[in-house]
Amino acid sequence: MTNTQPSSNFQNAAAYLSSSSSLARVSNTIKLELYGLFKFVTVSRIPSTSRPSIFDMTGRAKWDAWATVGKKYERPEEAERRYLEIARTLGWTEQEKGPDKREPETPSAEEDIWDKDEVSRGSSGGSGLAVSVSSMAPPPKVIDNSIHGTALSNDITGLKEILEAHPETDLNVLDEFGYAPIHLACDRGNVEIVKLLLQQGADKTIKDPDNFSPLELSKEAGHIEIVNLLVSTP
């Protein structure tokens, strides 16, 4: 054990995460980091066991995550700070009382979120007969820092940076598919981007390849706030 005890905030956040549904949507990378941080804070800086076999892929990934955290942070307080930071992005607040009221048998220090999560996936139950609901294979995640990319991904900071660095940027430039940034923002429902584009004087009457205006696109996609914004902007 480490010589410092985890703070009540930490225990609170761990309890929150172990019952929070927000964790279900989090990438494994984050889950692994949380796991590593949790182990650092509650057990020791680095794992004392040897690295698990390559066939125990989960165990090995977890071991690696723990070791990585141990290299990155020196003191448990730092790991704890990082843990709380992630917890906050997942909806935890310091007032959150944790799950005691909802779920009586939640986690002892040994039972961390990853383990719980894994159990709930059913694989460790040994059933081996799971049928999952298929949905569409998702499209490529492309990092695109152009004005079109930031309009698509709702990256308001990114778009502002571009406009500050390059005030001469043409806001109405079309991408390879014939869309202006305002088309994409109106279609995907990115209100703040639309606001910024309008402030900066983007053309709100520009037509897309299907001859739709930004207003028509946002109506079609049901983004009422953007519709109102476009209508009220002179």
Binding site: M136, P139, P140, D187, L217, E220
Partner: peptide, 30 residues
Amino acid sequence: YYHRLLNIPKLVNTRFCFVPRNMTLARMIR
């Protein structure tokens, strides 16, 4: 599994599928 999308706005909203980079929802519906 393969999927023939029918109710596009609902399928996009529930994240069953996504609007492709080269389309708008309006075009995807059409």
